[in-house]
Design a protein around this nucleic acid. Structure first.
Lengths: 205, 205
DNA sequence: CAATAAACGAACCGGCTAGTCGGTTTGTTT
DNA sequence: AAACAAACCGACTAGCCGGTTCGTTTATTG
């Protein structure tokens, strides 16, 4: 294996299990040693590849978190069809992974924001950037949907985006350790109820 | 001053500033010494009144958090009038305190749940109990509203409650450190939009 | 083979933490 | 004023953590 490829592979391994542990136990409650123990690697190896724990985490954000948010929360809602249906399916799928206790990157995002808020402005900046990307993409999707006649023309797309992100982040918090499946079902039913109220009213035949 | 009164006063002071610091800096990131420094008290005083940091926090939950959630998020929505209006006003007021960076106990609740999730089941239990109380009260309020003809009879009140709690917890997370006032405004506009879709349709005159 | 990259692992520092405990102050009671 | 207990003090313990350094070893490459 090429030397730089091996370097990349090791860094990738560290980042993946790093994100996993940070996600489940929190950043401050996870020591560098915890991550290294999981991988049977040494501290020397860690500081050979990364400058510090903070830099390590920022690289995780840039390399893993951003891309996962894109692939799970942004790309699935891009299409020329009805954006409300796309968003519904996107949330449905994302919440289903949450029911199975798998990692959900939208939730990871809001979790980390809670942890770093007021403590580490540098990391907060990175997290807020991702959130902004998510928001902008939802707004764009909704505006296109309005243009294509799926959403009522009086609707404020920025407001809908904020409302959607809020409800998603909130339901994920509520789905932690308490009848997640039932709550997911109830949430989705009201999301659809809300969507019916902002969709383009059919012209009577 | 009676001796037990003095005891109560000191414990109360510790709990109030304890909650303040735990809320702003997080539980694990706030040391007992931090709280004591704020009050110019010593470690001895703390462990004279409380068994441990954990017990201290649980007493804070029971004595302060529960009551504040009641007075800010539950009692304001109880009435014989339109519950949707009451809930709107209640959220409006609660979010306004958030804009001014004052303490918001509903948000504190979800913050603490994020922090203790997977780390301290005992404390999690207490927090989830409060959340359940909130949920039950919203459901009751909505059902009464349905009975009194303010809410459409086909609406699932449990689902609405979950959706409301989700959106509230989520918007509070989003209002941290990024144009909170604009987001509050957008959120409220869509909350009202959603409420219009579940209210009792007027019978045509 | 020589050079370089990657990883090891032990040692150390400075700092922070929850909790302990013997002693001291304060206030009330008798 | 003596006695006593509640309230409080603060030095101390024992342990963990993140970060850093460094001499050594193993693997890869040219």
């Amino acid at each position: 294996m090429s030397t730089s490829l091996k370097r990349m592979a090791t860094m990738q391994r560290m980042q993946v299990t790093g994100l996993e542990l940070f996600y489940t136990k929190g950043y401050y409650n996870t020591s560098v040693d915890d991550i290294l123990k999981e991988l049977s690697l040494s501290k020397g190896a860690f500081y050979y590849h990364f400058e510090s724990k903070e830099d390590f985490f920022i690289q995780i954000i840039e390399n893993l978190l951003v891309r996962k948010v894109y692939s799970m929360l942004i790309e699935p809602m891009e299409s020329h069809d009805n954006p409300l249906e796309k968003i519904t399916n996107c949330f449905e799928n994302a919440l289903e992974t949450a029911v199975h206790n798998e990692m959900d990157f939208g939730f990871a995002l809001s979790n980390f924001m809670g942890e770093f808020n007021g403590k580490n402005p540098r990391i907060m900046k990175h997290l807020q950037d991702i959130l902004k990307i998510w928001e902008v993409n939802i707004v764009t999707t909704l505006q296109k949907g309005k243009f294509n006649g799926f959403i009522d023309r009086h609707i404020d797309c920025e407001a809908v985006a904020v409302y959607l992100m809020s409800s998603y982040i909130g339901i994920r918090t509520l789905m932690v350790e308490s009848t997640p499946s039932a709550r997911k079902y109830r949430f989705m039913s009201q999301l659809k109820q809300y969507f019916r109220s902002i969709e383009q009213k059919q012209v009577n035949a």
